[in-house]
Nucleic acid binder design. Structure first.
Length: 573
RNA sequence: GGGCCCAUAGCUCAGCUGGUAGAGCAGCGGCCUUUUAAGCCGUUAGUCGCAGGUUCAAAUCCUGCUGGGCUCACCA
């Protein structure tokens, strides 16, 4: 509490209103009233008071002189003034507390004179305590007639206008404290999110999962493909990453015998912002031993349906004007079928990397990305030879890789020739693995947005799944699904790879991709491989985006509407 | 980073093909002891985002800048 007078706020846009309110504050002090009084103890919340009168019969034609509806009991409530209508010698105000709102009638002849004199300085936004009994007004509203009013906090700054909320989008996020007071929909959203998270915890606890917390600061990058934030520990002089996923630590715990674990916590990814991306976001990740990705589909259906019933009153919910039916079972669609049936591509795309690369570019995948997905299969020597043979030489493998990709981008007419040359270095499985990776890129470019109703997209290509278990019947695909709702990825799950040798090979492939210029790759995590060597039971794991789930259930269009304090550019920058 | 749009009173906005600033709300003063975005009377309030240009004259037209929004790209 600083003692700055009205003049101190001179630079503020709202200085005049603030100055007026500070004047009232001074007047209160001169009246011997503490405008920041402490110690008023409410006996009830507004909603408790209302509930106590639920069963009381309301007079059809209320007497003009207020009389207690219910015995001699008095109720003390406290809250912020959210409406204020004054008649000079009487006033109706509405007090809001954590539970709800209750109208209060303050009348000059019903409270001590000094209290009424102070009350005249009350504005919307101030906090008051009131004690009295309840009656019904002529318009039928349950109202507390106050026999005592106490100033609890004088608000020196006015609230934003309440009937259209804060129109300035940026200010709404920056000044969340004001948004929550003024925008009922916003407050409702965050209460819903909070209840959603506790329900998820109860759901998993009931299934014998153990909640844990794993490090947010990592030495190696893993568990997802994303660019990281970097930080530094001074005493150890250690560069660290803010984690992009908790996955590898959680699976270490499965090795250690915590064979059903979950964590609900933040991930940090150094990427652009959008309506569905905030740099820090909340993920639920859970791992269940002796389960498969197929079991997790069932579990996910149960969880979402449960949340929708509890929070939205049923499994058919409205999201941004579209009805979404969360009632199980949900559609299951393999990546291959999505690409052939929805996008209309030939299934050759999943066999022949050359056809896949050309198709990918045709549907809008960036040519450099498409070409990189091919060359990632080549080692250094092969890269040099491939480049030389298409006339895009480089002094070293890295330069050769870049030259190869540049040539592919620059000359559309020779793309097929370049792709064919690169593919000629691949074995049969490798050809299909690369084709699969490109098939996935085609899916994202084409069919993803059409998956509005809940859909499990299954059987992901190995090339994009460095931590997932291979399918028994086709080793270039994985036992993995992603859940799409409303055209947006909501969850990602797979049967976990627990063969340490295969895992080492996958990490090596990540390093190779990085050498070819891929920005979002995992580090080789030797300690994790060591853990796998100790034996990890067969398990399946899943990550669910809590923010996106809250968006869905609260029917909000932007991730910023479900994150209390989203990342904002500094003011005026 | 590309495209489209916006910036006028504390807030929400009007201001036509150029003629020199307006409403509602909020605030302040007054009246009012049953209001529901209370009402009635009065009143304060603006370097029209910034800098140039065209013009006798610019909130209005042009250029640049700044800030913001939407969208595309990026985000497996």
């Amino acid at each position: 509490m600083d003692g700055a007078g009205a003049a101190g706020a001179g630079a503020d846009d709202e200085s005049r209103v603030i100055a007026d309110r500070r004047k009232k504050l001074e007047e209160l002090r001169q009246l011997g009233v503490n405008p920041f009084a402490n110690g008023f103890a409410p006996t009830h919340t507004t909603v408790e008071v209302i509930a106590l009168h639920d069963s009381v019969e309301k007079p059809a034609d209320p007497p003009r002189e207020p009389a207690p509806l219910r015995g001699d009991e008095r109720y003390a409530i406290a809250g912020r003034i959210v409406a204020h209508r004054s008649f000079g010698k009487a006033a109706f105000i509405k007090l809001r507390d954590r539970a709800g709102e209750l109208q209060v009638y303050v009348r000059k002849d019903k409270v001590p004179e000094a209290a009424f004199e102070a009350f005249k300085r009350a504005d919307v936004g101030d906090f008051l305590g009131a004690r009295g009994f309840c009656f019904v007004t002529k318009t039928g509203e349950l109202t507390l007639l106050s026999e005592e009013v106490v100033f609890l906090t004088k608000a020196v700054r006015p609230l934003p206008p309440s009937w259209h909320g804060i129109k300035d989008v940026e200010r709404r996020y920056r000044e969340r404290y004001a948004d929550l007071v003024v925008d009922a929909e916003s407050a409702r959203t965050f209460r819903l999110r909070s209840r959603m998270v506790s329900m998820i915890r109860r759901f998993l606890d009931a299934r014998d999962f153990l909640e844990v917390e794993t490090p947010m600061m990592h030495l190696t990058l893993g568990g997802a493909a994303a660019r990281p934030f970097r930080t530094h520990h001074n005493a150890l002089d250690l560069d660290l990453y803010m984690r992009i996923a908790p996955e590898l630590h959680l699976k270490r715990l499965v090795v250690g015998g915590f064979d059903r674990v979950y964590e609900i916590n933040r991930n940090f990814r150094n990427e652009g912002l959008s309506r569905s991306h905030n740099p820090e976001f909340t993920m639920l990740e859970f791992y269940q031993a002796y389960a498969t990705f197929s079991d997790l589909m069932t579990l996910t259906e149960e969880l979402f349906a449960h949340l929708a019933r509890e929070l939205c009153g049923g499994t058919r919910i409205m999201y941004q004007g579209t009805e979404i039916d969360l009632g199980p079972p949900w559609r299951r669609l393999s990546v291959k079928r999505a690409v052939t049936e929805i996008a209309g591509e030939s299934d050759v795309v999943f066999e022949d990397p050359v056809a896949a690369a050309l198709a990918a570019v045709r549907v809008g995948v960036r040519p450099d990305e498409a070409c990189r997905m091919l060359v990632e299969a080549l080692d250094e020597q092969e890269t040099m030879r491939a480049a030389a043979e298409v006339g895009a030489s480089g002094a070293n493998p890295h330069a050769a890789s870049r030259a190869l990709i540049e040539r592919f981008v620059a000359s559309p007419e020779s793309r097929e020739q370049i792709a064919t040359k690169i593919a000629s270095f691949m074995g049969e499985d490798e050809r299909r693995e690369r084709a699969g990776g490109l098939g996935m890129a085609i899916f994202e470019q084409t069919a993803e947005k059409d998956l509005v109703q809940p859909t499990f997209l299954t059987d992901f290509p190995l090339a994009v799944s460095p931590l997932a278990r291979r399918k028994d019947d086709d080793p270039v695909f994985c036992d993995r699904f992603e859940l799409y709702i409303g055209g947006r990825e909501m969850a990602n799950a797979f049967s976990e790879l627990n063969d340490p040798d295969d895992q080492r090979a996958r990490f090596l492939a990540q390093l190779r991709a990085k050498a070819h210029g891929a920005e979002e790759t995992m580090d080789y995590d030797e300690d994790y491989c060591r853990a796998l060597e100790l034996g990890m039971p067969p398990a399946a794991g899943e990550g669910i985006g809590i923010d996106r789930l809250a968006m869905l259930l609260a029917d909000r269009a932007s991730i910023r509407d479900v994150i209390l304090f989203p990342l904002m550019r500094p003011e005026g920058k």
